[in-house]
């Protein structure tokens, strides 16, 4: 057996553990999170002297061609400028062949952590609306996220909502609005086990509980904005119930969920793509109506529910009228006696 010097031991330790950022402008600091599709590290941008979050994707075995496409996609995604989107602002390849994305390091809490500390439904739904707005913006620019889940949504220090992890997003249209072919899209398997070239139809990407049925089945050519709408519905389910989606309806998990809220959730999570909301903006608008106690498009109310909702919304007016009526009745009786 060959004796290993301290420097070799140190090098072996680094290749077996930490990512090798040599040749890049980043210096490894620590691991932040590990997911099915990659690991996020905190690193120092040594040129700009600032901390960044770097996602290193799990699959190193990719061809030059696929790597080029992946970098091109990242460049397109990096153009998304929206206050609710943490864009990829750098992309590259590590010496070991793995592709990485550098993102702004966001200080805050994840949506699931936020939900654990905030029970107020209205607050949660306002945050959800902000998520929908960011996703709607990306959709308008031809980009779908494909891995929307509470763990990829951050609430910043000032309460701002940021959608993270656009590193595996799919470009539906480029700037010229031309629809890309499937071959232009790299799909990474969640366990990072597949080799290059296994990116065709049938490969699954995303997080099962939050992904659409077509995404679960690996029907890549079927993926469009409505897959993200499904995932948004799943996030909505989580915010209503504090649980990741299951086959049970939200009201079964949490009886306090209103019927209209459940209807919005179920519409967004329809198994049939055509039955879902047409856009994230439509979903956001329905949530907005729910918050304003207006009728939502996803739910047909009966007469009693209409009255109840109207009374709920105009409680002050109703109380005023009731008080007036009571006073009138009181005067009528007192004047008779």
């Amino acid at each position: 057996m060959k004796w290993l010097s301290d420097s070799k031991v140190s090098h072996l330790r680094s290749i077996a553990g930490d990512p090798d950022f040599s040749g890049t402008k980043y210096a490894f600091i620590k691991e932040l999170a590990r997911g099915g599709m990659g690991t996020v590290y905190l690193a120092e941008d040594t040129e700009l002297n600032r901390q960044v979050a770097i996602k290193v994707l799990s699959t190193p075995d990719i061809t030059e061609d696929l790597r080029r496409r992946m970098i091109r996609e990242a460049q397109i995604i990096a153009r998304l400028e929206h206050p609710g989107i943490v864009p990829v602002h750098d992309v590259g390849v590590l010496p070991d062949g793995r592709v990485f994305y550098a993102m702004k390091f966001v200080r805050g809490v994840r949506l699931d952590e936020y939900a654990a500390s905030t029970s107020a439904t209205r607050e949660r739904l306002r945050k959800f609306q902000a998520v929908c707005d960011a996703v709607a913006f990306a959709h308008a620019h031809g980009v779908i996220h494909r891995d929307l889940k509470p763990q990829n949504i951050m609430i910043g220090s000032f309460g701002e909502v940021l959608v993270l992890d656009w590193g595996v997003a799919k470009i539906l249209r480029d700037d010229k609005n031309a629809v890309s072919s499937e071959a232009d899209t790299l799909i990474l398997p969640p366990d990072g086990s597949n080799k290059a070239g296994d990116t065709a139809h049938g490969t699954v990407i995303g997080t099962r509980q939050y992904m659409s049925p077509e995404q679960s089945r690996g029907e890549i050519d079927q993926l469009d904005e409505r897959s993200d709408i499904y995932s948004l519905g799943a996030v909505f389910y989580f915010l209503l119930t504090d649980h990741a989606p299951t086959d049970e309806k939200p009201r079964t998990v949490n009886p306090k969920v209103s019927k209209p809220a459940e209807a919005i959730c179920l519409k967004a999570m329809s198994r049939e793509r055509a039955a879902r909301y047409g856009s994230a903006a439509d979903l956001s608008a329905d949530v907005s109506r729910l918050l304003d106690a207006e009728p939502v498009s996803a739910y047909r109310e009966n007469a009693y529910e209409k009255v109840s909702r109207w009374v709920g919304k105009n409680r002050f007016l109703v109380l005023l009228v009731l008080a007036y009526l009571l006073m009138r009745i009181f005067f009528i009786f007192t004047s008779r006696s």
Binding site: D61, T63, E64
Partner: peptide, 15 residues
């Protein structure tokens, strides 16, 4: 690219 992939795979084995 083959060197990259071989090294990456061997390092994974090592780990």
């Amino acid at each position: 690219a083959t060197v990259t992939n071989y090294l990456a795979a061997t390092r994974r084995d090592f780990r």
